[in-house]
Design a binder for these strands. Structure first.
Lengths: 139, 139
DNA sequence: TCTTGACCTGGAGCGCACTCCAACCCTGAC
DNA sequence: GTCAGGGTTGGAGTGCGCTCCAGGTCAAGA
């Protein structure tokens, strides 16, 4: 319809950081709210609304939400008004998982830091002080 | 040798949180420092040293280190003294990746929280106040 | 007219990290 | 003696999330 009706998949790829293959895969797999619009020649045309949605689901993915949960969320949004509580529940459940995961990683990282400290000490006591100071700047 | 020379794979599984299959897989895949000791009947016998190592590599894995990097680290430790700097480099590189990953997840989580806030507001303005207060306790 | 390049589709393939399975071996209890 | 239980091995299978490919369409430029 509109001559300037959206971005090519290459442009969308550049603006979202997802590869064209991934963009097509998300669409095939039901992660988009609707099939992306097409040009007269059948090429995808992404709108700003599409890009905003892609950026949201990219955040969900980047925080570890599985594809099928993203699809469930997309399904809810697609159904339209009335299920906001369900969407909220889904997002909150995810939030709790992310927080738990963050805490766990931070705990493990603390232990790894301790290990790093042991190696630093070991090396400080072993190598010539000058050489060591050059090779192991503090963090 | 020692009659009480270690734990069965089932015990090791319980104490590390890894399944027996995973414990065997790690050994096969070169993640252990040595092949785990065997009883006279060929059953694995895990020592406390084995368990400590497993707990360390579990922390590495839980912070996202790929199996092949864990194997590289195990290779270094197996080689013995002299490559502490390399081990330190490997752990520090991993540490930086974990920190970057944590920052990224926290950023995404902030955006998701904002989305959650929008739904909370929407629901507060839509549902009957009493019902709403019951259904959406703060966080 | 021919070529190039961007895109399309359906479907196969891949890397990762397990997870499962069949076939077998011991030991000890009944 | 036989059977259950707990292990062994090598190798196949699985789920996830992409990633790649073949064969095709279309439009614009030389």
């Amino acid at each position: 319809m509109n001559p300037t009706a959206g971005l090519s998949i290459a442009d969308a790829s550049e603006r979202t950081g997802l590869t064209p293959d991934t963009l097509r895969y998300y669409e095939r797999d039901g992660l988009m709210l609707h099939a992306v619009g097409r040009s007269s020649t059948g090429h995808r045309r992404y709108t700003e609304t599409d890009l905003r949605w892609i950026r949201l689901i990219t955040r969900l993915r980047a925080t570890g939400m599985p594809i099928r949960a993203v699809r469930r969320y997309a399904d809810l949004v697609r159904q339209g008004d009335g299920n906001e509580q369900e969407r909220l529940d889904l997002l909150r459940a995810h939030r709790q998982q992310v927080l738990a995961q963050l805490a766990e990683v931070q705990d493990h990282l603390g232990a790894i830091d301790a290990k790093i400290g042991i190696y630093v000490e070991k090396l400080e006591n072993t190598l010539q002080p000058t050489l060591d100071l050059e090779r192991t700047p503090t963090v």
